[in-house]
Amino acid sequence: MTFILRRLAALVGVLIASSFLVFAAMYAAPGSPENFLVQGRTVSPEVLAAIREQYSLDDPFLVRFWNWLTNVLHGDFGRSLANQQDVGELLAGRLPTTLMLVTLAAIIIIVLGIGMGIVAGTRGGVVDKIILLGSNLGFAIPTFFAALILMSIFSVGLGWFPVFGSGDGFFDRIWHLTLPAFALALPSSAVVARITRTSIREERDSEHSVMARARGVAESLVMRRHVIRNSMLPVSTIVGVHIAGLIAGSFVVEYAFTLDGIGTLLVHAVQRKDFAVVQAIAIVLVAAFGVINLLVDLFYASIDPRVKVETNR
């Protein structure tokens, strides 16, 4: 319990510090903050006043940060600097696509990555060689390249999947997001497969597995209870890290498939220098990243009895 509270407190601390970083970043830009925010767009005096108000540019620096942070905590992310839309609404509209994409990719990493790793680790022989080679190459394939190749083969060539867009309704969305999710999950699956394989190899010859065999426990049970189960401990942290990493990877894949998710929104905002949107997305993603990492640590503590005891002391 104290472990969870301590981790939560640390997360809150990091989030406050990183939101300060996100807020203060604009002051690192050359020129006045006003010029930076407007970026040479022609704006009416009313809009300019609204922007000054949004960033409380008439107040001292720390007050500006405080105003901005409290607004963010109330869910008010201000308005887009490029087209005056409400950033919170903009984000909310884009969230489902990104969430679904990341969830699908996470499932693929778990099923494909761990599955392949277990097959390679337990079977050996040609299957093992092929999976090992595949994972050595797989991790080197950039998601955007995988996206293009998958798109040109399965969408343009075979016509099995739509080329662009996110779809409407649950199943249509899944159909639209299948290829993007595979492109996004490919490199991580390769890494997870390799680590699973190594971990299984190590556990297979571990003393407790060998002694379980020596005690007359059936091989299939030794594999399940001692080898695979225990090899999942290190694998679960790696999987967690990679699922958290999907957040950043999703920008690129969303953009490649022109999906209407947060990632595409972020890329366009950076291209258009719409800093209010960039800030909002950065804050949301850092928070999501932190929460996923925390959940992974808690999950790990829950499956490995040794972690619990150490942290409770």
């Binding site: 990091v14 930076f36 990493g245 957040i247 890329v267 960039v278 850092v286 990243f289």
Partner: peptide
């Protein structure tokens, strides 16, 4: 706390 690409994009948003 920042995913690598996010930090890079934040910097690019500021410095071009």
């Amino acid at each position: 706390a920042f995913p690598n690409l996010l930090l890079a994009m934040l910097a690019i948003a500021v410095f071009g």
